[in-house]
């Protein structure tokens, strides 16, 4: 994934479409707000299994906080983006823009031999 050039490396955690979409959706919340799992699922239109797999990866990277609570005796899972998650998305977007304006327009994945 890394590239020894002038181009910025892309964060492998969010450089995968489902995780990128989850991160973007969570970034639309105001800071300090959190969202329930089903509501997030509706916004990113993913299956529950798929969403939890990707959430786990984002949580492992420290980008997402998962909070388990009880509402009227029913367990509810709340999700929110951490500060570093928000920063990772900003850095990722900035890196994409840098790639687009780079003269060669090469992709960081295609590391030269």
């Amino acid at each position: 994934m890394t590239i020894d050039g002038l181009l910025p490396p892309l964060d492998p955690v969010i450089h995968a479409q489902p995780r990128l979409r989850v991160t973007v959706a969570l970034a639309a919340l105001d800071e300090g707000d959190q969202i329930t799992f089903p509501r997030l699922q509706e916004i990113v239109s993913m299956t529950a299994g798929n969403l939890s797999t990707h959430l786990r990866k984002l949580e492992d990277a420290g980008y997402v906080t998962v909070t388990k609570a009880h509402r009227h005796r029913t367990p509810v899972t709340y999700l929110s983006l951490t500060r570093s998650g928000r920063r990772a998305l900003e850095d990722y977007t900035a890196a994409l823009r840098a790639l687009l304006t780079a003269p060669e327009h090469q992709l960081p994945q295609e590391s030269s031999p």
Binding site: L29, D30, D33, Q34, I35, R39, L40
Partner: peptide, 9 residues
């Protein structure tokens, strides 16, 4: 605001 918790809600 359904399913959202926090200061803005």
């Amino acid at each position: 605001s359904h399913g959202v918790e926090g200061p803005s809600r």
